[in-house]
Deep mutational scan, measured.
Amino acid sequence: HFTSQQLQELEATFQRNRYPDMSTREEIAVWTNLTEARVRVWFKNRRAKWR
């Protein structure tokens, strides 16, 4: 589960860029205190939901 702060950060990034690269995902991981893998999976799932 994600905190509302984490989701806000993830959503804001998603609005700007639906396909963040590795370095962007790592930055998000640092800001949100999540692993890069969790961030990558979140984006994958979010893109699926967005379609």
Rank of each mutant, 00 (worst) to 15 (best):
H1L: 11
H1W: 13
H1P: 12
H1S: 12
H1G: 12
H1D: 11
H1A: 12
F2V: 07
F2K: 03
F2C: 08
F2Q: 02
F2R: 03
F2L: 13
T3Y: 03
T3N: 08
T3H: 04
T3E: 04
T3F: 04
T3K: 04
T3S: 09
S4F: 12
S4C: 15
S4Y: 13
S4A: 13
S4P: 14
S4V: 13
S4K: 13
Q5N: 08
Q5D: 10
Q5T: 10
Q5K: 12
Q5H: 12
Q5S: 10
Q5R: 11
Q5E: 12
Q5V: 10
Q5M: 11
Q5G: 09
Q5P: 06
Q6W: 05
Q6Y: 03
Q6K: 04
Q6H: 04
L7D: 05
L7E: 09
L7S: 05
L7N: 07
Q8R: 12
Q8I: 12
Q8D: 10
Q8S: 10
Q8T: 10
Q8N: 10
Q8V: 10
E9K: 15
E9L: 15
E9M: 15
E9R: 15
E9C: 15
E9D: 12
E9H: 14
L10K: 01
L10G: 00
L10V: 00
E11Y: 04
E11G: 00
E11I: 05
E11S: 01
E11W: 05
A12K: 13
A12R: 13
A12F: 11
A12E: 11
A12M: 10
A12W: 12
T13M: 15
T13Y: 15
T13A: 15
F14S: 01
F14V: 01
F14K: 03
F14L: 01
F14A: 01
F14P: 01
F14M: 01
F14W: 06
F14I: 02
Q15T: 08
Q15S: 09
Q15M: 09
Q15F: 07
Q15A: 11
R16T: 10
R16A: 09
R16H: 11
R16P: 02
R16I: 12
N17M: 08
N17H: 07
N17G: 05
N17D: 07
N17V: 08
N17C: 14
N17A: 05
N17Y: 06
N17I: 09
R18K: 14
R18A: 09
R18D: 02
R18S: 06
Y19D: 04
Y19Q: 05
Y19H: 07
Y19K: 04
Y19N: 07
Y19T: 05
Y19E: 03
P20D: 02
P20N: 02
P20T: 01
P20Q: 02
P20I: 03
P20F: 04
P20R: 01
D21F: 02
D21Y: 03
D21G: 06
D21W: 03
D21E: 04
D21P: 07
D21Q: 05
D21C: 08
D21I: 04
M22E: 08
M22N: 06
M22D: 04
M22I: 10
M22W: 11
S23P: 10
S23Y: 10
S23D: 08
S23T: 11
S23V: 12
T24D: 07
T24E: 14
T24V: 08
T24Q: 14
T24Y: 07
R25F: 07
R25K: 00
R25E: 02
R25P: 01
R25A: 03
R25S: 01
E26C: 14
E26I: 14
E26T: 12
E27T: 10
E27M: 14
E27A: 14
E27W: 11
E27N: 10
E27Y: 09
E27S: 10
E27I: 11
I28V: 07
I28S: 00
I28Q: 01
I28L: 12
I28E: 01
I28Y: 03
A29E: 01
A29W: 04
A29P: 02
A29V: 01
A29R: 01
A29D: 03
A29C: 05
A29T: 02
V30S: 13
V30D: 10
V30C: 12
V30F: 13
V30W: 09
V30K: 15
V30M: 13
V30T: 12
W31A: 15
W31G: 11
W31K: 15
W31H: 14
W31P: 01
W31M: 15
W31F: 14
T32D: 01
T32H: 07
T32Q: 06
T32L: 15
T32C: 13
T32E: 02
T32M: 13
N33C: 07
N33F: 06
N33A: 07
N33G: 15
N33K: 09
N33M: 07
L34P: 00
L34V: 06
L34H: 03
L34E: 02
L34M: 09
T35K: 03
T35W: 05
T35I: 04
T35D: 09
T35F: 03
T35C: 06
T35S: 10
T35A: 05
T35V: 04
T35E: 06
T35H: 04
E36S: 05
E36F: 05
E36G: 03
E36A: 06
E36Y: 01
A37C: 08
A37R: 11
A37G: 07
A37F: 13
A37Q: 11
A37K: 12
R38F: 13
R38K: 12
R38Q: 15
R38Y: 10
R38S: 13
R38A: 15
R38W: 12
R38G: 08
R38N: 09
V39F: 01
V39W: 01
V39H: 02
V39E: 00
V39A: 02
V39P: 00
V39T: 00
V39M: 01
R40Y: 07
R40T: 06
V41R: 14
V41W: 15
V41H: 12
V41E: 15
V41C: 14
V41T: 12
W42S: 00
W42A: 00
W42R: 00
W42V: 00
F43K: 00
F43T: 00
F43G: 00
K44G: 05
K44R: 11
K44A: 10
K44M: 11
K44H: 09
K44P: 01
K44F: 09
N45H: 13
N45S: 09
N45I: 13
N45F: 12
N45E: 14
N45A: 12
R46G: 01
R46E: 07
R46W: 05
R46S: 02
R46T: 04
R47T: 03
R47L: 08
R47Q: 06
R47A: 04
R47V: 06
A48V: 09
A48M: 09
A48R: 13
A48P: 01
A48D: 09
A48W: 07
A48C: 10
K49L: 12
K49W: 08
K49A: 12
K49I: 14
K49C: 09
K49E: 13
K49T: 09
K49V: 12
K49H: 10
W50I: 08
W50G: 08
W50P: 06
W50L: 11
W50Q: 10
W50R: 07
W50D: 13
W50S: 09
W50M: 11
W50Y: 07
R51D: 08
R51S: 08
R51I: 10
R51Q: 09
R51V: 08
R51Y: 11
R51K: 11
